[in-house]
Amino acid sequence: MIPGSFSYHRPASVADAVKLLSDLGDDARPLAGGHSLVPMMKLRLATPAHLVDLHGIATLKGIRRDGSNLVIGAMTTQHELLASDDIAQSMPILHEAALLIADPQVRYRGTIGGNVANGDPGNDMPALMMTAGATYRLEGAGGARDVAAADFYQGAYFTALEPGEILTAVSIPVPAAGHGYAYEKLKRKVGDYATAAAAVVLTMSGGKVATCSIGLTNVHETPLLATDAAKAVIGTSLDAATLKKAAAAAEAIMAPAADARGPVEYRKHVGGIMVTRALQRAAAKAK
């Protein structure tokens, strides 16, 4: 539990950080909140020779409006997300999910950028970003580009980030007023990753589901968008048979690992239940 030696860099701008990362190559890793990287270094499962700490870059922090989008700087902490009135009002599912991430100490340090960029299927924010239709801004030596969250995750810890690129911001379209939402997370204890979790954002019209998006956390090597499950509930009043169909459609794309949280069968089963419960709660909240 003792990390090996490394050099520490603290650039003051994105340009400097990008230059450092491209100069130092594979031996360098950007450091955000450190909650994933530092434990891996302590176990010597990660042995970067250089850490490029992004805390010195002021432009990476903050929450602002850009037209109909909310733009959140990558180094904005979970605690800052929770403190934002704008997010609480216009994007309440983000507030709800951030409260389910670990504990206050972790949330003071953990960042939205680190959470979504690391590619850990256990993290809560990636599925949420896919559900909300977010895009990520990636900046590297070759300039900046935007990648949809839905296209970002390629495998466990494998993402669309190219070597030397940094995820600098998350842009989320503000959902329609009166939308319903829920993030249902089953976990063994505070600080644990989800046994299974489901995010739902929907709108209702005349007692029936008008639009719906469903995301799944920690039931596959990447976060998932459960598009078939979402399709199954459109135009319905979420009757028992529909809920069953949606849960089954969601379970059909899950491929969780068996671990101490339970065997595969259990994790898929409760994954389906999280979908059902999230749909019901979201519908009840919709106006």
Partner: peptide
Amino acid sequence: VVTGSFMDFFMPTAVE
């Protein structure tokens, strides 16, 4: 041995 940390070795917090 598969329970080598407090992630998997259940150590309840005040919440649980």
